[in-house]
Design a binder for these strands. Structure first.
Length: 878
RNA sequence: GCGGGGUUAGCUCAGCGGUAGAGCGUCUCCUUUACACGGAGAGGGUCAGGGGUUCGAAUCCCUUACCCCGCACCA
């Protein structure tokens, strides 16, 4: 029994009900069977730091589109969901929350603090799952994983121990990027550079020369506070200005220490500045290397907390770095050692997570020797075993992988995988998966390393650790390697590269064969969304307002390029499309009188030209959508469906079918055929649209009464060659073009819809003429004519035209330009002048131009130009 | 500094060798029994500037200007 659709499209009425039905149906869970053709994909696990933003909505919509498409196309499909503990990021948000209560993590102690984070995690992973559910994500929740789960943690320990045994993990002292706020080392990729206006201070160092007049060397520095830790001054060995000073000593101002003057061709560029460089091995990467070359002393003057140490000297100990800088400059000025100050822009490295200036710091950390892992990972992409699209990212990938540095993996944090290394008081270190009872070398008591691993260490194992690896599980055999990886380009190095390296090393296989990197969502002016700018869009707010389908479709259409601008008006545009689908379906359901499962197949021979045309077009779109999805052109696929459904199916086919469906024209057989085709086109269109708009398509499709219990498990349409009909397309297109021409003439000459014309037309052959004789009712109704004469001779004085190869002539009554029309032009001119005046007033207002965001001012200027042009045009027409 | 991308309609973007496209916005007309979240029409662009290749260039090459994004970094 056919059911009717509600009069209004109200997504809130059915979305959640539909989702629960899918869950109950078990459609998200694939079978475990390595023999079946499969498609598998893992979610880029969202951080449990908070709620999902619109960027997550994008990447997960793209996942769901691909996953639903593959599932309907007959693949045993797994989308494996989960979340990431996100080390430092999560630790930071919980610390911030505790700070509001006036507590810091040291008050709580490690165990209690970690317990706090677990509570936070529980709440947020539930929220995240709920958000994904509301978007329609067809992920297999029975396989949901978290990077700190026992199974995944075991994989982490296994990999760590294996890499250590293979000599690819080492512990050592090195200069690393240190975040004084988070009090941990971070890796190179976590450092972001910010351009800043700074000063360049020129400082004189006295040179002690036995028996000769004293000289001074001028060094330039952007960080005067580090001079307290200088242990040398360097010049270029070939620099004639200073050649005689090499090997002598300089006196470091303030500290009054004697430091050597060394020659170093790598550190010093004689062309730059004064050609003299101060050397601070403890607080600068290049200086650290120089120090190693010259065996210089290290003097740490800045501590882990960013405050000056005792070594900085009396009057400095305990001062913050920036305060110490001010004081050093002050003292240099007083003692006359400060020669001059220049302003200078430089790029300061900051910690991407908290924006704190990075302090290069010498410390003992754990590292992964990365080159042996990177080499096969480069090869995998070069050979095509892994394809990255858009392909332009491959260059970026190679560039990075070929210049890769060892990876600092230890973090001085409390939240994460604790490194499986066990130290004893005698200095022995044992690396094993499980804690040993005693030190295997000396029998002493052991204590586990307090450092944890970089969060990307565990997410690098995600495609296989989530499937039970290192055990040979049925899941692993069935679903690994995965097929596609979809994620934002911003984590190409952080995540994608690490998965490729780990996957190849430990499973011997590339963890996926295709990578699709999507763009970043921005606001409608191309600005990055951020809370401080107030331009963030919460996906759930949008879902509540317009439904998940409209949001998903908008995101899919917008995916090309690096930046994805998203504004309310754009979403509204596609929510109108969902509404259109609803209403067209409602119309169709009013006329369709049999269920899909009883309808039988269409007798191809009985089809008439207009039906052949729409089926041919539907087939072309089917082909197009499948093709575009296979190359991740979500925009093209969605756009083709939009164009077809709205502008071909609704605007033309339904209108062309109406005379028959509504009984104004045609036989009963013809009517039955039109109904059958209407059902066919609607059915196929809904299935094609389903991956993009799962909710509304399901809600409507179930009313068509198909054999499958859900559109989710109905087959995805594929193109069928025998539906192609270029001749039907030619004739239908011609009919449409002729109708459009008549409408044009009507509007241009100022006629109303009530004025009736006579149309004369001539076909190229008998077949064409027969078509227009058969379908003259289409021209009469859609072009509002009172007569169509095929093959007749057109009288003189008619409007002649050639449309799509057909000669037509339109005969219409005489018509004078009325006073009313003239008045209307005058009213328009007045209206435009008024609007222009108001915009110009605004632009002349200084307060507006100074205070409004530039985008708004620019918009006003653009509007001004547009209005001026329009005004000119109207005045000409008067 | 090195590398990559961009500059197309008022806005946001497709197109990337063969007669300039979409969505939104603008204007006009229309309550025609699916939809006013609608229908029918209209207007709007020397495709950043300059040079070249070609029968033909938004599209390929060179160049200039401006913008974005990586990577590296000079004290």
């Amino acid at each position: 029994m056919k059911e009717e659709l509600a009069k209004r499209y109200e997504p809130a009425e059915f979305e959640q009900r539909v989702y629960s039905a899918w869950e109950k149906g078990g459609y998200f869970t694939p079978v475990v069977d390595p023999e079946k053709p499969k498609f598998s994909i893992v979610i880029p696990p969202p951080n449990v730091t908070g709620r999902l933003h619109i960027g997550h909505a994008l990447v997960n919509t793209l996942h769901d589109i691909i996953v639903r498409w593959k599932r309907m196309s007959g693949f045993n499909t797994l989308w494996l969901p989960g979340t990431d503990h996100a080390g430092i990021a999560t630790q930071m948000v919980v610390e911030r929350k505790l700070a509001e209560q006036g507590i810091n993590r040291f008050d709580l102690g490690r165990d209690k603090f970690v317990e706090e984070i677990w509570m936070w995690k529980e709440q947020h992973s539930t929220e995240i799952k709920d958000q994904l559910t509301r978007l329609g994500a067809s992920a297999d929740w029975s396989r949901e994983r978290f990077t700190l789960d026992e199974g995944l943690s075991r994989a982490v320990r296994y990999v760590f121990v294996k890499l250590y045994e293979d000599g690819l993990i080492y512990r050592g002292i090195a200069i690393v990027n240190w975040c004084p706020r988070c009090r941990t080392a971070i890796s190179d990729v976590e450092v972001e550079f910010r351009e800043r206006n700074a000063s360049l201070w020129f400082v004189d160092y006295d040179v002690t020369l036995d028996g000769v007049a004293p000289r001074r060397l001028t060094v330039a520095t952007t960080r005067p506070e580090t001079m307290l830790g200088d242990t040398a001054v360097a010049v270029h060995p070939d620099d004639v200005r200073y050649k005689d000073l090499i090997g002598k000593h300089a006196i470091l101002p303030i500290a009054n220490r004697r430091i050597p003057i060394i020659a170093d061709p790598i550190l010093v560029d004689p062309e730059f500045g004064t050609g003299v460089v101060k050397v601070t091995p403890s607080h600068d990467k290049n200086d650290y290397e120089t120090g190693k070359r010259h065996d210089l002393a290290q003097l740490q003057v800045i501590g882990e907390d960013g405050r000056m140490t005792a070594a900085a000297g009396a009057g400095f100990e305990g001062l913050d770095r920036s305060e110490a800088r001010r004081r050093v400059v002050e003292q240099l000025k007083e003692s006359g050692h400060l020669v001059k100050v220049e302003s200078h822009t430089n790029n300061v490295g900051v910690h991407g997570k908290c924006d704190t200036d990075i302090e290069p710091m010498v410390s003992r950390q754990w590292f992964v020797k990365i080159e042996p892992l990177a080499r096969p990972a480069i090869e995998a992409v070069r050979s095509g075993a892994i394809q990255i699209s858009p392909q332009t990212w491959e260059a970026t990938y190679f560039n990075w992988m070929e210049n890769i540095h060892d990876w600092t993996i230890s973090r001085q944090l409390w939240w994460g995988h604790r490194i499986p290394a066990f130290h004893c008081p005698n200095g022995h270190t044992t690396v094993t998966m499980e804690e040993p009872a005693q030190c295997p070398e000396c029998g002493g008591a052991v204590m586990q390393e307090t450092d944890v691993l970089d969060t990307w260490f565990s997410s690098g194992l995600w495609p296989f650790s989530t499937m039970g690896w290192p055990d040979e599980t049925p899941d692993l055999r069935t679903f690994y390697p995965t097929d596609t990886l979809i994620t934002g380009f911003d984590i190409l190095f952080f995540w994608v590269a690490r998965m490729i390296m780990f996957g190849l090393r430990f499973t011997g296989k590339a963890p996926f064969s295709q990578v699709f990197l999507n763009g970043l969502v921005r606001d409608e002016h191309g600005q990055k969304m951020s809370k401080t700018k107030g331009n963030v869009i919460d996906p759930l707010d949008v879902v509540k307002e317009v439904g998940a389908d409209a949001l998903r479709f908008t995101l899919a259409v917008a995916t090309t390029g690096r930046d994805i601008p998203l504004g309310k008006s754009r979403i509204a545009g596609y929510s109108a499309f969902v509404n259109k689908i609803w209403n067209a379906s409602r119309f169709a359901l009013m006329h369709i009188d049999s269920e899909l499962k009883d309808a039988g197949s269409i007798e191809r021979d009985n089809l008439r030209t207009v039906e052949r045309w729409i089926l041919s077009r539907l087939n072309a779109v089917t082909n197009e959508v499948n093709r575009q999805l296979s190359v991740f052109r979500f925009d093209e696929a969605a756009g083709a469906l939009y164009q077809f459904f709205w502008h071909e199916f609704c605007d033309w086919y339904i209108e062309m079918a109406k005379p028959v469906l509504l009984g104004r024209h045609g036989s009963d057989d013809h009517r039955a055929l039109a109904k059958r085709v209407l059902l066919e086109v609607l059915d196929r269109s809904l299935r094609l649209l389903h991956p993009f708009m799962p909710f509304v398509t399901e809600e409507i499709w179930l009313k068509l009464g198909g054999v499958e219990p859900s559109i989710m498990v109905a087959p995805y349409p594929i193109s069928e060659e025998d539906l192609e009909d270029s001749d039907a397309e030619r004739l239908a297109t011609a009919a449409q073009a002729i109708i459009t021409t008549v409408r044009n003439v009507r509007a241009e000459r100022g006629f109303t819809p009530k004025d009736r014309f006579t149309l004369y037309l001539r076909g190229n052959d008998e077949r064409d003429s027969n078509f227009f004789r058969d379908y003259d009712y289409l021209l009469l109704e859609l072009a509002r004519l009172d007569q169509v004469i095929v093959e007749g001779e057109a009288p003189a004085g008619t409007h002649h035209d050639v449309v799509e190869g057909f000669h037509i002539a339109i005969q219409f009554p005489e018509k004078q330009v009325s006073q009313e029309q003239l008045d209307r032009v005058r009213r328009d001119i007045e209206k435009t002048q008024g609007e222009l005046a108001s915009i110009e007033g605004k632009l002349a207002n200084e307060q507006f131009t100074r205070n409004a965001p530039s985008a708004i001012v620019e918009g006003a200027r653009a509007r001004q130009t547009e209005l001026r042009a329009r005004l000119e045009k109207l005045q000409q027409n008067q």
